[in-house]
Amino acid sequence: MLAVVVGFLAFTQINSTSTGPEMQFIWGLVAAVSFGFVVFSVFRVRRVSSMARVIPHKVMSIVLCPQCSFKQIKNFAMGDYVFKTEGKCTQCGVGSLFINGIYTEDLKRR
């Protein structure tokens, strides 16, 4: 709040015709620092609120056929678990497909 008031005061001083170039420079500096502080404060508040979100993970299930080389990576669906059978293999028609692994893609954010 103080930074906004000081910044406003500085801008009025810069625009004033009675202010010399030396003083304009000083007030310009004051205005820049005030503006920087305001931006920094807003950025901090934004960062705080953005950090408290549920991070969306992309979770994948690896489906394998034990008989042939069939391998499929699909999006995780509710109810999936490792070693869950997924019906007959669409490629060889013999083996029973099963989920061999479930993983999430990189958690990196920000």
Partner: peptide
């Protein structure tokens, strides 16, 4: 823990 809650809700390893 929030991430864990989401994993537990969906039954992910």
């Amino acid at each position: 823990y929030l991430g864990a809650a989401k994993a537990f809700a969906e039954g992910q390893p």
